[in-house]
Write a protein that binds this DNA or RNA. Sequence first.
DNA 1: CGAGAATTTGATGATGATCAAACATAGTGG
DNA 2: CCACTATGTTTGATCATCATCAAATTCTCG
Lengths: 218, 218
Amino acid sequence: MRHLCMPEGLCANDIAKLENIISVTRKVKRGDALFRAGDRFDALFAVRSGSIKTVITHDGGREQVTGLLLAGDALGFEGIEDGEHTCDAIALEDSTVCVVPYTLFERMCRETDALQRRLHRMMSHAVNRESSHVVRLGMLRADERVARLLLDISSRLSRRGYASSEFTLRMTRDDMGSYLGMTLETVSRTLSRFDKLGLIETQGKFIRIRDFDGLRAV
Amino acid sequence: MRHLCMPEGLCANDIAKLENIISVTRKVKRGDALFRAGDRFDALFAVRSGSIKTVITHDGGREQVTGLLLAGDALGFEGIEDGEHTCDAIALEDSTVCVVPYTLFERMCRETDALQRRLHRMMSHAVNRESSHVVRLGMLRADERVARLLLDISSRLSRRGYASSEFTLRMTRDDMGSYLGMTLETVSRTLSRFDKLGLIETQGKFIRIRDFDGLRAV
DNA sequence: CGAGAATTTGATGATGATCAAACATAGTGG
DNA sequence: CCACTATGTTTGATCATCATCAAATTCTCG
């Protein structure tokens, strides 16, 4: 049972080719950076285990969490444009990623159209991921944003075959707040309220969703 | 002097190839859709003249403007993932776009690595565009968002060789508000205040920037 | 286990939303 | 081409949401 870093099917032949170039994995310790803004871009990454946040550091030191990557998610596409990464990627827990050397991968994509299609879909997915985040930030109230985040994580986990109703979110409340465009206090209060309402159960970073429809209706 | 839809250099040979497949242009009348969410995705587009907004319609009819595309900008990448578009693209004024048939383009990208690199950079750019919008929505106050939008448009225009200090923004205040995650009233008030402060001059949709540093410092 | 970090909860206040009404602009048909 | 009507904009008054400041409590990990 081998783990495929970049899931969803290719034909056996293509998979073999792919495995050749993504045989390299890299471990990243909790709190360490997989890459930093300004680092030379030379590889894409896929989260194999653990989770990673992407952070943009604004002039003045203010930081914003712009992305949350779970096992199975690919990252690094932002670096292609100018050949250097535009954000920091920080491990939220000890994690493992597959390393996909970019120029090699690009060449393979020219040879294999299935692989090319796959890369394009991944990049398109990255666009859509950002775009739904824009919607979340742009037209939802604080409690709606929190509810959506929980549902989003849940559905991403279930798509990957993990339990969808309970998980441990390694982000701090501060990270969640930064990601959702609100303060850590508001995140905390919102989670407490959801708990009191019977929508979820929280014990620190562990979260269990008790009432999916209720959350959707927030 | 021919207009190249997708600017920035390729070698003469590649340009010739490219021009072959992007010879088709399409006119879109103000208010009409270039494509709608759910439409089959089969081409990428590049704005040749005019401007276009992308809109996501939330369940319940609420709409959010997620993107603003000016002459020279490419759009449609969100459709690659599932083969159908995920947002509406609406012309803000009578506009012209180049049509780039996708499968054809994909094939060409496998043949010409310069073209492939170009496509990848465009998609990466699309990711970064969304991502800076996330930052704008996530960590800025209302007036900072408006200031950033104006500066952003200005720098995009100047990069394309247009006047950078005055332009006519075809969006309504409502569109701007939706794009910036605030109400049209707040947009209007903010612009009025900037005007009184001498940062800009406004006459309806026409805007002249008088004090770039002032705007940056908002 | 203990110290530093993270979380929770409360009290207060500011930013921006909402409601409302006057005013301006642009698009249409006579 | 002008007048008329729609639509868009501005400005004001009030209110709700969420940020800020603060302090007590609980986790976590080295």
